[in-house]
Amino acid sequence: MKQKIINPSTSVNTATHPGSTGYDYTMGPQQTLPDLPVSSGTIAASGTNGGSSTAASAHTSLPSVYNGSLHPHAHNQHVSLAAFAFLFQELISQARNASKSVSEIEMRLHRNGYHIGIRLLELLNFRSSVSPGFGSTSSSRAFFSKTSINSSSNTLALNNALTTTQDEPSLAQGISHMKRRDLKPVEILQFIHSTVWTYLFGRVSDDLVKSSERDNEYMLVDSAPMLSQFISSTNVQCDFFVCGIIEGILDSASFPCNVTIHSVPEPNFQQRAVFVVRFEQQVLEREALRA
């Protein structure tokens, strides 16, 4: 009976900072204790007020991602392509320096992309569920940016937003129907072809084709891949980064697969790239079961 074990440090903590410890999987689920104020987050957030003065308990003074907003207009929507290009070039040269072989470079770029892909799957689908126009008025934009950026200046308002969640304009409040989870390979590939490509590169991909030879194979075509345009003279396929993004999306959506990049130049499109998605057998088997 773990609730009978009294851990001295925990009990002290509970008295002074009730409920501010968070989930600990070695402890299992904790009750919402009756006399607790609901928002343990208040304590964590009010620490931002003190800054260096309350540095004693550093962990309670950090600002939190939960105070920000997922609204696409919560912060600036664009940076210059040049800034991204410089960063990306540096990402590649760093991958080069840290690797012994070309395949290792590609693997590193793939990993960076994968990191992004798993996030985009949740973020973009969740955002698509929100009714258009929700929270996009100028006044709420101001509110969003204030809470997300200048968290320290008005701690009072922040605390209010924490204690009474209805003050916090969560995107979930603007959802009447969640977008459906994509269940078929074609559906999720269309999501990548349209939603993801538009988000990343400002336009849909040029084509999405099913292989006529192999059942588990699809091809996403990009005639002028944005990333390789500012990488010159290299045999490293920079679009392994994009392969990683695609694979991250598909993998975390439970469509395990392997994504490769093939350069297939055409007269007008020297950089034309074909991303080949090969689903694992289990995906096809699952499809067959449902059909």
């Binding site: 989930y23 304590i43 997922l70 924490l162």
Partner: peptide, 28 residues
């Protein structure tokens, strides 16, 4: 709240969410 957790570059997919703020928000 989960999507916000995931967006943090330091969060690893499938790892326990230990943030006290997350906990507080969920309970609220």
């Amino acid at each position: 709240l989960y999507v916000k957790t995931l967006m943090n570059p330091f969060y690893t997919l499938n790892e326990p969410i230990t943030s006290p703020v997350f906990d507080g928000r969920v309970r609220a």
